[in-house]
């Protein structure tokens, strides 16, 4: 195991974390999709490096799959959705960004604290980055909480999956192919279903603001 690949994985982990922070402080929907695509590219690179470093052939396949799905297919779908919904240039009002980032810092601390015992058990080459992966998951969850429009929420959900994927790659040197295919299919179907949902929400309320869903509850 060369020092270089560990360094590269560290670098990619940092990039992923930074992209997560960029996502929670990004107002434009279009930029969010770009950031998501970048996250996908980071994941592909990580998987490829792990594959190269550990010599596991099937990880290359996984990297290819991730590339097809997260760099090409899903962003394409998202682009189409925002075009069709005509929200390409939408800007969302956010609560104060510094506050979000301070909460983000706390989440990072919590994530590292949680990851420490797991990382000790792991024998993987990239265990040092487990905390970062966990932090990305938590940050994506927070992003979903703070958004009120549907598309950013879906992106939050997808980026959460990215964090999980990274955690899996980092802590176990990659998952078995069957699991990976399953997850990939799940994500794809998830996006499709959510896309359909969004059109329906839009038809019903003439807006993608999911606060309207509050009206659906029984009194």
């Amino acid at each position: 195991m060369s020092g270089l690949s560990i360094q590269l994985i560290d670098f990619l982990a940092a990039l992923l974390l930074m992209l997560s922070f960029a996502m929670i402080s990004q107002r434009r929907i279009l930029s969010l999709i770009h950031l998501f695509t970048l996250q996908g590219i980071t994941l592909v690179a990580t998987t490829a490096i792990v594959a190269h470093a550990t010599g596991q052939e099937h990880l290359y396949l996984s990297a290819g799959l991730t590339f097809a799905l997260k760099v090409i297919l899903i962003p394409l779908l998202l682009h189409r959705i925002i075009d069709r919904l005509n929200v390409r240039w939408d800007v969302e009002t956010l609560i104060n960004i510094p506050t979000l980032m301070i909460i983000g810092i706390v989440l990072v601390i919590v994530a590292f604290d949680l990851a420490l015992p797991i990382a000790k058990l792991s024998t993987s080459i990239a265990r040092g980055t487990l905390g970062i992966a966990l932090a990305c998951v938590l940050l994506s969850l927070m992003m979903m909480i703070t958004r009120s429009k549907a598309v950013p929420q879906v992106i939050g959900f997808l980026s959460l999956e990215n964090g999980l994927f990274f955690a899996a790659t980092a802590s176990t040197n990659g998952m078995p192919m069957v699991v990976e295919l399953g997850i990939a299919l799940d994500v794809l179907v998830g996006v499709l279903i959510l896309g359909v949902f969004m059109f329906h929400i839009r038809e019903q309320f003439e807006s993608l603001d999911i606060r309207h869903l509050e009206r659906l509850k029984e009194d």
Binding site: F21, I97, M101, G104, I105, I109, F112
Partner: peptide
Amino acid sequence: EFLATAFLLAVIGMLVNNL
């Protein structure tokens, strides 16, 4: 906001460094 982002990024950097 812009500068607070810079400040917090730097703090995150230091945290990650320590962690």
